[in-house]
Amino acid sequence: MKPRVGIFSFSSCEGCQLQILNMENELLDIVGAIDLVTFREAMDPVARDYDVAFVEGSITRESEIPMLEEIRRKADVLVALGACATIGGVNAMKNKFSPEENLQEVYGDAGSEYYDTIPTRGIDEVVDVDYYIHGCPIDRTDFAQTVTSLLLGKRPYTPNFPVCVECRLKENVCVYDRDDDEICLGPVIRAGCSAVCPSFGSACIGCRGYVDQANFDSLIKVMVEHGIDEEEAKKKLRMFNTGNAKAQEVEA
């Protein structure tokens, strides 16, 4: 029996769903292996029940909470899909301000009449999450790996080592040794992306969330040595991770 799978979306750009649709070479294998019953980006919502739910997006409105709880009740396995769902993502940057300020900034004086907003949370702060597919957007092979793992009945592989490891495996020149002025969060951010940003001349900006036991003090010192002040360093660490449960450690 093929597992019935639903893909759901909360506050996000829906780019992670798009990543799945972009898996041209694997998409037929995926739909052959699973029974896709809900996938807003690709089909009309049809299903009322499912075994596995992939949930993208963060929770930023009260009305999203019961919807997410409903999904959790129905699904045997719930997988958070992408940075918004796993750690709140960039959406959580607004948490530095009050909901009133957020509404005023975005919608002007009339905003509060039509909209509500609450501090952004990753979905695991609302319901239990079984597995995580990190990243903004998600990595397609990571999605495929998660699907095969679920089919095999094993826990999907989620690295708990930093991006630095993948940079060394690829023998990249370290961002901090390049002659641009990029600041890299690689030493404290979870790998699994094949160090894609540093590999293409950019730097890690933290979309996959912090590794366990991240040493923020040391990295902030390194960032300061490379020319930015401490406040700026913390801002970089917060960009994707304001909503991350471990974000307080950055401030400490």
């Binding site: 080592f161 930093p162 630095c164 490891v165 690689g186 991240a214 040493n215």
Partner: peptide, 10 residues
């Protein structure tokens, strides 16, 4: 001081 990043090993 150590970030436990594994670079030295690799």
């Amino acid at each position: 001081e150590c970030m436990g990043c594994g670079r030295c090993n690799l």
